[in-house]
Each structure stands twice: as C-alpha cells, then as structure tokens.
Design a protein around this nucleic acid. Structure first.
Lengths: 206, 206
DNA sequence: GTAGGGACATACATTGCGTATGTCAATTGG
DNA sequence: CCAATTGACATACGCAATGTATGTCCCTAC
C-alpha cells in the first residue's frame, strides 16, 4: 500500500479534488484581481499565471472572463447572505432582524471587495443584479425578512420585494457614499440614522 | 460683400461654430453608442466614423474614451436636474416637491439611455457618482429639496445629504428592478407605493 | 491494455486602445 | 497682403488583451 492504484474509488476522488482545487484557485485569483484592479483592468494572463495556471484552464472551467466574474459574484453574494442569516437569527424580533440586517448590509458594502465587485463592476458586467443567475440571494433574503415582518403585523401593506429592493438600493448607495467620504465614521453615523428613519416609515403606525 | 473676409469677427465665429459642431457630433455619437451597446462594447472607431470623424478628433477634444463618457454622463445629469427642477417648481409645497421628484426620478431612471449610462456603466467607468466631476447635480438637487423640507419643519432631524443619498439609491435601484421586470407597470406601481411609505418615514411625526 | 475523453497548455488571429506623427486650413503679426 | 505659427483633425504604428483552435498528456472505462 505504498501507493494507491487507480482502481477507481480513491483515484477518481483525488482527481476530482484536483479539479476542484484548480477551480478554487482560479476563483480565488480572479476574485483577488477583480477586487484589486477592477474587472476591465484585470488581465486574465496575469492572474491565472499568479495561480500557476493559464487562460486555458479558465476558459475550460468558466467559459470566459465573464463566467469567472459571475462565479465570483455568486460566491460573494452567498457569503453575504450567510452572514446576514447568522446575524438575523440572533435578533429578538422580525422587525429587529430586518433593521439590523440593513445596518449590517451597509457595513458589508463598505468592504472594498464587496463594493467593487458587487456594486461597481457587477451591474456593468452582469447587468441588473435582480437578473443575476441566483437572483441575488441577499435580496431574496431581505425580501423574506420583510415578509416575516408583514406576517407579524409590524409592517404596513407594502409589497415585500419592493421594500427589499428599495432598502437594498438605499443601503448599497449609502455604502458607496460612506466609502468615498473623507470621514467615513461621521458619514456612516448620519447614513445609519437616516436609514433607521426611513425604515420606520415602513413600520405600521399603531 | 459677396464673400466674408477673414478679418476676424465673422470668420472666427464660424470657426468656433465648426469646432463646437464636431464636439457636439462626437458627444451625440458617443452617447448613442454608449446607450445602445454599453461603454465597453462601444468601439471608438465605429461611432466616430458614424459621425464622419475619426478617433483623432475624439482624443483631441475629450482626451480619450473615458473623457467622452464623462462628458456624456454630465450632459445627461444636467438634463435630469433640469427636468426635476422644472417639475419641482410647480409643486405646492417643499414636501410635495420632494415626493414628486423622487417619483419622477424613478420614471427617468427607466429610460434605457439613463439607466445604462448613469446607473450601470457610470459607476464602473467613473467610480462613485458622488465623486463625479459635477458631484452629481441631481443628488445635490434632491439634497436641496430635503433641506427645504427640513426648513419648513416637515422633516425629522435627518442629515439632508444622507436622506438624499438613500433616496437616490432606493429610486435608482427600484428603476433597475422595474426596467427588468416582466410587467413593468405592475412592478412600478408597487415600487412607487413602497417609496411613498419610506418617504413618510422621513416626515416628522406630528 | 488500449481506446477515448477530459483537463489544461500553447499558438494564432482579431480587435481595440493610446500615442506619435503628419497635414491642411485658419489666425495672427508685420 | 504675406509668412509663420497654431490648432483641428486624420493617419500610422505598437501593444495588450481577449477568444478560439489546436495540441498534449494523463486518467478512466471497457
């Protein structure tokens, strides 16, 4: 048993692992390059080489530059959703979950990687986020929270997805604003305060 | 006086007119191409040729592809501001002016040209709109309206620019959503209703 | 064990941008 | 009225980057 024979089981798994590994390497390299230099300026030759590969591998696995970018965006979107989910599950009420999710969303959108890939280059490369392959998991997540709030009776009769959309736009735009401000802390405080006020507008007046 | 001598006055004006005309032709051709094909896919050779010119003229007047795009974006931004201004000046109150401006903004953002250039490609090419050369005149305009509302006492104590930013993000995102929806009319109604609700959140509870 | 297919690299063609250079008309100064 | 110069614009060139077509090698399957 000094070596493994290519009987099938073991080797095939190793093989699949190798493939998954190169996919992951490409994904990571692309993600880094897209975040650092932006989509247009990122050279496929450069960042595939930095992963010890060539464009051949990229075209094989992702079909092209756009395909890789799409995969990266989906990965980030999933991560955001997961983080929001973890946060919301610790909230006392649906309403609080929604509010805290929105605030957290602003914070996440401040991260340069998220900002650049999801909010700046994303729409230009992939089109409207709502038409992305996974339909923007994080928007769907917020929509769910709005629905929960409505079910709990704390929301006025607005369309859940419409509310989620508006919130998404408001928060991501606020994040852009904060990120490019001279004093991000002060601006952030203002933005969050205004955001809470707007959210209150959605709450049922009782 | 059968012909005009190049004494200066008349001829120099004609000359300037010619120059202004080619500038305008480039601007129009670029605007059309950017709107139709997007920034990245628009070929300078193609659309300058469609204006009866070459890239030489473009580089001379605008410094490059980015420069022309910037000029186009500023032009559109000015047009939007002007339209909002005309609309707001007919409103009965500052609050109504703000609300109607936001609703109108959604409508404008639905126009394919505005959508593509200002909301999709704009941020990717020029960066965050708030850092654009003219600092996004339309955001400044809305900020002014929010300030007027605050002065009139109908707004709670939110930061004017923060509110304007959130509104801008919410409306433009809503527009994106509407534009890509199957039934734009229905979605538009939902979005506007939710927008009004959010706006109410900013209004001082009295 | 050999035939086949998939994973990836290499080679090539195309396209598009940016810059350097050239040309011609118009302005300016005498 | 003429010559020199400036500026508007076109042409020519080089480079970089993408997409595709082809090749090679190793694993898998029969």
């Amino acid at each position: 048993m000094a070596y493994v024979s290519s009987v099938e089981g073991v080797m095939s798994k190793t093989r699949k692992e190798m493939i998954a590994e190169t996919r992951a390497k490409l994904l990571a390299a692309g993600r880094h390059a897209f975040a650092e230099q932006g989509y247009a300026e990122a050279s496929m030759d450069d960042f595939t080489a930095s992963a010890g590969l060539t464009r051949g591998a990229l075209y094989h696995h992702f079909g092209g530059k756009t395909g890789l970018f799409e995969a990266v965006a989906m990965q980030i979107d999933d991560e955001i959703t997961e983080r929001l989910d973890a946060l919301a599950s610790r909230a006392a009420s649906p309403w609080e979950a929604l509010v805290e999710s929105c605030v957290a969303y602003v914070q996440m959108a401040l991260e340069p990687e998220v900002q650049r890939i999801m909010f700046r280059d994303g729409p230009a490369v992939l089109g409207d986020p709502s038409s992305w392959p996974n339909a923007s998991a994080c928007i769907a997540f917020v929509t769910g929270q709005v629905e929960a709030c409505r079910a709990a009776g704390v929301l006025s009769d607005v369309d859940p997805e419409a509310a989620a959309r508006l919130l998404n736009g408001a928060t991501s735009d606020a994040a852009q604003w904060i990120a490019n401000a001279k004093n991000p802390e002060g601006v952030s405080a203002k933005a969050v305060a205004a955001l809470r006020a707007m959210l209150d507008g959605l709450r049922r007046a009782d």
